[in-house]
């Protein structure tokens, strides 16, 4: 596990609840290797999203060490955390979180603007990302004009456009029907295989679980099971 891109040791996360607190994560130890297609699975309230948020430098651990791509997430300040997310991480959310005033092209282009890529670089990368997800015909559409599946494909394109090392996906299929879910997941598998991008899901959707190569089951803030799934 020396080459793990995510290393977590003794991770504890508490949320204040009035005068007391709620312990969402209770001493998590975890390693994730480059190119994995891994899911944090478990029922609601098991700590999947909390763990994903801490790995994504969106939240801070209460105790323990979290190292992502060599960065000690627990020691990063806001600026450094933003830089880590900007340069290395892609996020896919359950509710897509597309920017409503932008069209498909602009939404996908957005992370590249933050990375200050040139116009030519942006154009090339955005078109490639939209080709991956098969949305070239919707390039000028606004999110409100797209179906849920299309929105999530835009979100995947946005997460992938900067070619991140890790993509963190929080319940990516929760709002999608079965056909769209499979389409989305197949797209992610393809990207994972072609680009060696590490995918880490938080999910309790069986459709997603069926695509995973590693399933880490969380229960009451602890890892109950860590299972490698052999695929044919």
């Amino acid at each position: 596990m020396e080459n793990a891109i995510i290393k977590i040791r003794g991770l504890v996360k508490d949320y204040p609840m009035g005068v007391t607190y709620f312990r969402a994560l209770k001493g998590i130890n975890l390693d994730v290797q480059q190119g994995e297609f891994t899911g944090l699975v478990g029922p609601s309230g098991s700590g999947k999203t909390t763990l994903l948020n801490i790995i994504g430098a969106l939240d801070n651990p209460t105790q323990g060490e979290v190292e992502v791509l060599g960065y000690q997430v627990d020691k990063l300040n806001h600026k450094q955390a933003a830089r880590l997310r900007n340069e290395n991480l892609g996020f896919i959310f359950q509710t897509y979180n597309l920017l409503p005033v932008y069209n498909v092209y602009e939404n996908v282009e957005f992370p590249l603007l933050l990375l200050k890529k040139s116009a030519d670089e942006r154009k090339e990368a955005v078109i490639q990302a939209l080709e991956w997800v098969g949305l070239m015909d919707k390039i000028k559409s606004r999110p409100a004009q797209l179906s849920g599946g299309e929105c999530q494909r835009v979100a995947i394109a946005r997460a992938m456009v900067k070619n991140p090392r890790i993509v963190l996906a929080d319940e990516p299929t929760a709002n999608l029907d079965a056909a769209n879910s499979h389409h989305i997941l197949q797209t992610m598998v393809k990207l994972n295989q072609e680009l060696r991008t590490t995918f880490l899901f938080a999910t309790h959707d069986d459709k997603v679980i069926s695509y995973l190569r590693r399933a880490i089951t969380l229960r009451d803030g602890m890892i109950a099971e860590d299972k490698i799934i052999q695929t044919t």
């Binding site: 997310r85 900007n86 979180n97 920017l99 946005r158």
Partner: peptide
């Protein structure tokens, strides 16, 4: 939510 998304995409609070 948009602010959260912007931060997740790499924008600092500033």
């Amino acid at each position: 939510k948009e602010m959260g998304t912007l931060m997740a995409l790499g924008m600092t609070r500033r």
